[in-house]
Every structure is written in structure tokens, then in C-alpha cells.
Design a protein around this nucleic acid. Structure first.
Lengths: 145, 145
DNA sequence: GGCGATGTTTGATGTCATCAAGTAACTCGA
DNA sequence: TCGAGTTACTTGATGACATCAAACATCGCC
């Protein structure tokens, strides 16, 4: 892997490659979601629902206005993929919980995402570890502008 | 970097890390665009306009319906960031061209994106080359589901 | 000349995003 | 304890994207 044939890429090239992979991955996610009648946003919400999450918490996770979440959850609830439960400790908050149907749907979306990425299987263990380590160094500084 | 402390990541971990970086990058792009009064979509369109591009071509690049492009270009044109020109060879097509103002705006957005990624500067040449090579192997298979 | 394919726009509709405003419930200090 | 300020959620108005169906002009070609 050293003495590589690849010349050092410019910063711009790296950014563009990252962007290309990012948009490709997003499109696949959207496509997988669409196969189950979900918009990307709805799928994203379901993906966050490991346990009960208050509306406000969803707004934080989605980085959007709280009032926006109301509509999104309304639509998910209308399809029985999600339920609003009162919070026992604070009567202001409503916790959103995925129904069994909701859990199934998001599980399938995830499976289809993974299946689509045979490319990852072409990396051996060392390569995976290297890639992961390098990407991990990129992540933190990207969190705040 | 070899004999690394990092254990081999699972496929899922890698996918999630990629997703995290992807959404972080997208948010930064959106933020940079917003600073110039552009929606992410509008900025994306401007970014494609190296030369004249027909409406239909934009729809292909954006992976969306052609009728959608009409509105997006309308709004950009209203702000003089873009111009519609008749195609000399085919009177059906209208080519979209960035105005000088449009070119300036997108150039600044790009600059801010790069500036935001000091993390990339922490990679030395070899690391950059390795990362690029590994990412490049991921890209092609992601293009079609 | 005329028929099918292509490029663009319009109109209807739905989802996502914002902001402003309203209601209910919590918190905390006087 | 009671009232002021904060917080959680919803509603309503508005705008940008996204789709589809349909209309229109133009092109390509037999």
C-alpha cells in the first residue's frame, strides 16, 4: 500500500470525492426509503427511534425547527409507524416511539443500504481499519462551523 | 500507523461514519450557501454551471424532474445569478449560464467550505493519498443501486 | 408532410423548512 | 404560594423542492 501509484490529491479533490460519496450514499438511502413509501426525512426519524424520544429531542437530532417535527411525526403516526406517548415525568413532553411496524420498516431500509454496498466488502481488515481511522480524524472538526 | 490501536471496524460502523461525515459536510455546504442567501439546491445548481447547461441537463445532474428545474432557475434568474440563453443549434433548448455575480457567489461558497475543513490539513501527504485511494474504491459501486 | 420523440413550461399536490404566535406545564425565587 | 420567566408542543402563514400529468413547440426521420 505504500510507494503508491496514487499521487497526493489536493484538498479540493478530496473534498469533492467525499462530497460525491456523500451524495451517492444519500441517494441510496432515499431510494431505499422510497421503496417502503417513506420520504428520506421520515426514514431518518425512524432511524433515530431506538427508544422514546421527545419531540424536542427529534428537532435537535434533525437540526430543524421544533414545529417542523410536528408535521413529520403526524404523518408517521397516521401510518402507524410511530406513536406519541405522554411523558410520565413532564406533562409537557410527548415521547415518540416506533411501533413494531416502524421498527420493521427501518430495519429493512438499513438492510438494503448495507446490501447495496458490496464495495465495502472489497476492503480487507487492514484497509477497513485504516480508512476508519482516517475518516474518524475528519469527523470531529466537521461538527461545528 | 500500522500495528494500529484501531480494531477492524464493522461494515455498519464504517457506513455510519461515512454517513456522519456526509451529513456534516452537507450541513456546512447548506450553511455556506445560506450566508449568501442561497438554498442548498440553488448553490448546487450554480456549482454545476462551469459552462452553458441546458435545462434538461441540469435535471440529469440534479437527479430530479425537469419541471422542477424550471422553478429553481426562475428564482436564480430573478436574482441575476443566472441567465437563460437560447441554444443556437436547437430552438427547443434553453441553456443556463451563470452571470458574473453568480460565479462570484459560488466561488465564495466553495472557499468557505474549504476554510471550514482544517481537519484535512492535519493529514500528511501519504495519509491523504491513502485516504483518497480507499475512498476512490468506494465510489464507483455506489453510483447505481 | 406528418408522426413520434424530445425540451420546456404550467398547474395541481404533497413534504419539508422557516418564523410568529398561542397554550399548557414546569421552575424558581420573593 | 404565587407569579414571572422558561420550556414543550402545536397551529397558521409562507416559501422552496419534489413529483406527476398535460400542453406546447421543435426536432428527426420515414
Amino acid at each position: 500500500m505504500s510507494e503508491t501509484a496514487t499521487p497526493a490529491p489536493t484538498k479540493v479533490q478530496l473534498l469533492e470525492l467525499l462530497a460525491a460519496i456523500g451524495t451517492a450514499q444519500w441517494r441510496e438511502f432515499a431510494a431505499a426509503a422510497a421503496q417502503h413509501g417513506l420520504t428520506p426525512t421520515q426514514a431518518r426519524v425512524l432511524a433515530q427511534l431506538d427508544g422514546p424520544v421527545p419531540m424536542r429531542g427529534l428537532a435537535v437530532l434533525l437540526v430543524c425547527d421544533a414545529s417542523n417535527v410536528t408535521g413529520i411525526v403526524d404523518r408517521l403516526e397516521a401510518r402507524e409507524l410511530v406513536r406519541r406517548e405522554p411523558d410520565p415525568a413532564d406533562r409537557r413532553v410527548k415521547n415518540v416511539v416506533a411501533t413494531e411496524a416502524g421498527r420493521q420498516v427501518i430495519r429493512r431500509v438499513r438492510e438494503e443500504m448495507q446490501a447495496a454496498h458490496g464495495a465495502l466488502d472489497t476492503l480487507d481488515e487492514a484497509e477497513s481499519a485504516t480508512l476508519y481511522a482516517l475518516l474518524a480524524r475528519l469527523r470531529p472538526s466537521m461538527e461545528k462551523g
